[in-house]
Design a protein around this nucleic acid. Structure first.
Lengths: 166, 166
DNA sequence: TTTAAATAGTTTAACATTGAAGTACTATTG
DNA sequence: CAATAGTACTTCAATGTTAAACTATTTAAA
């Protein structure tokens, strides 16, 4: 395992650690997705429902900040959720804002799915002891710094960068 | 930090660890992408060039296995790289296979970019000591198991799941 | 050998993503 | 109050992604 790259010890360490981190995130997400697929929810949609479920109604901008996604992306994800009748858009007093909230159906769905998702997650995490989990979390947090320092609720789904064009 | 979710200690631990892992992968990728963007390379394209650079010519299927991506996806990424003249497709003796290889231009580009990418990566990783990096790598590897057990070369770019439809 | 099964790539439909440009509304300020 | 700046969301173009259906080619079987 590890990189085949020949370089200084520091280079090899960085490369190996990075690859393993990415693979872990990747493979974990893959193994977690079947639970969601069964309800035709994508990770992004699940993440949005999760935020709305745990935080209550929020405007799209806030949703984007919680999920670390661009405004354009949120528009699309909310579009798709709205089309399925899982969330509702509502203009705020300040008519620039649009509050997104769960519909009864949306709430019912996330209430049904979240426990399953959590159970699957725990199943995966059990590979590590509690102490190892804490260590992993601490190291990841250090590495993930440089962020706005949010990270507080749910959002166990969604959270992947990409790299549009240019 | 952590989740606001109220549950058993095991649930909260799993949730927190998972979120931090995802955020770390996410934010690290974001901070690494500027180096690539400067050459108009996406993470996926960079990952493909990296594999070709370190392993030499391989068929598309192999590329997909190295990058953990679907065949359809590889077709598109290689299309885009070919369109820019960075790689070349060549039918094998068994005419079902298509060997992909770097063009002179592609090789020149990856040779120029890889060191910069590596330098940026090291810069990020320096937040952790060598020992911490090894620990992180070990824990991630445990969590990322269940895979085909490949993981050997380059591919410091690309490696994100998604969630197509259904 | 004709047929069936397996393998490698491509295509397509749907959704995700970003960044940039555009629209609507609010707040500032001269 | 009118011009300007700022904020929130939408639209657009380009790329990424997957799963499923399809094409071409090779291999195995009858």
């Amino acid at each position: 395992m590890g990189t085949r790259y020949r370089g200084t010890r520091e280079e090899v360490n960085a490369l190996n650690t990075f690859i393993k981190l990415m693979r872990a995130a990747d493979s974990l997400t893959s193994r977690l997705s079947p639970v969601l697929s069964s309800t035709r929810l994508t990770m992004s949609q699940f993440g949005a429902l999760e935020v709305l479920f745990h935080l209550g109604p929020v405007c799209q901008g806030e949703l984007g900040r919680k999920l670390l996604r661009s405004g354009g992306n949120i528009t699309m994800v909310v579009d798709n959720l709205e089309r399925r009748g899982l969330v509702r858009r509502e203009r705020g007093e300040d008519r620039r804002f649009i509050t997104v909230q769960l519909t009864r159906e949306g709430r019912k769905l996330i209430q049904k799915i979240f426990p399953k998702h959590l159970a699957a997650l725990i199943g995966e995490m059990r590979i590590l002891t509690e102490s190892e989990q804490k260590t992993l979390g601490r190291l990841c947090k250090k590495l993930g710094k440089g962020l706005d320092g949010e990270v507080q609720t749910g959002q166990t789904g969604a959270a992947h960068p990409k790299g549009g064009k240019k």
